[in-house]
Design a binder for these strands. Structure first.
Lengths: 184, 184
DNA sequence: GGCTCCATGTAAGTTGTTACATGATTCA
DNA sequence: TGAATCATGTAACAACTTACATGGAGCC
């Protein structure tokens, strides 16, 4: 049920088409919530049936028409009710951890390599997030309330990436065969 | 496809029934991968059909029979192939962040309260993880390779909880209305 | 008498993924 | 000439959740 609510929240900013939403989910929101365009279109149909959004077709020349959705007062109320529900801590679903549970000498090199690869990937992501942070949220205390919410999303992304990076480094330390030429 | 692999990995330790697996997924493994018993039974049936596990019925007096599953050589090979596939960084799916995207004065108190609640929940989890760590993994460098894998799972849990805790504290700081009687 | 544990499952529904489909426009 | 962008969708499948079902054993 949460993707539909994520869509509603995104529509609070401004009316958008499914295409717009999909692009946005690929960027900012997508750091912590992924959705493909197919799923978004399906949810929009459902939301329209529920009367939580209302759609308007915008004709275009030489392009498929855009169908732009806006949140309705009914949708607003539904959203407010949802906000009142308690949240569950998310679970991590980290495949690499499962793989490490199968650790044995034969696949140690493989898993070390994969951990190194992930380390690089997370470094890149972190750098990207930090750049966004500098560009858009340099002084969080001076932001509007709405934008503080956005800031906190990005901030969570940074903290999680940092934690993951540290984990990767520790894992490599722990699993790397000690090299005698390096010690002492 | 990852739950079936998580089950295979768990069966590496020893043959287990669906019931055993469900209990284990509620404990150690469950810190980063949840599964209900229904899902586990379904996956076991699938795995049996694929020939990746083989089952043996253990009759019991005055109790339902246990069906104990063990990994087969074929399952071993499938697992080794899966280990070779690259892993994706998991995505967070944190509902609270979506809710904060809908931040406005009217629901600020609500979201502050929820953040406080989550702060407590994560503190408790962290304490629990740290206790397990002390009990079972006091000296990680001296563990067997297999147990180092388990250690790293728990370690990830701790790092994520710490990051989340810090985030909660920062969020409260940022969103709490400044109380004039506290400043200066 | 009611609760939890043991132990397995079916059925229905929701959510999300992958594959497939269309078709003009713009850029290299 | 080929790829990417714009823009919407259907169909099949995989993964996961929720509800329901059974029934004895042991505990308080």
């Amino acid at each position: 049920m949460a993707l539909s609510h994520a869509i509603l929240v995104s529509l609070l900013d401004r009316p958008q088409s499914g295409y717009d939403l999909a692009k946005r989910f690929d960027q900012t929101v997508g750091y912590f919530w992924k959705a493909r365009h197919q799923q978004i279109y399906l949810e929009l149909h459902k939301l329209a049936k529920l009367g939580w959004v209302h759609s308007e077709t915008v004709p275009q020349r030489a392009r498929p028409n855009r169908i732009v959705y806006a949140i309705t007062p009914h949708g607003q109320r539904a959203l407010d009710e949802w906000l009142r529900l308690p949240t569950e801590p998310p679970n991590i679903k980290e495949e690499l951890l499962i793989k490490l549970f199968a650790l044995k000498p034969a696949n140690l090199p493989l898993l070390l390599e994969e951990t190194r690869r992930r380390l690089c990937a997370h470094r890149q992501r972190l750098a990207q997030y930090q750049q966004l942070m500098q560009q858009h949220y340099a002084q969080p205390a001076q932001l509007s309330l709405r934008r503080r919410g956005h800031y906190l999303g990005l901030r969570m992304g940074i903290l999680i990436e940092q934690a993951t990076l540290q984990w990767c480094e520790e894992a490599l330390q722990l699993l790397m065969p000690a090299d005698p030429s390096q010690s002492a």
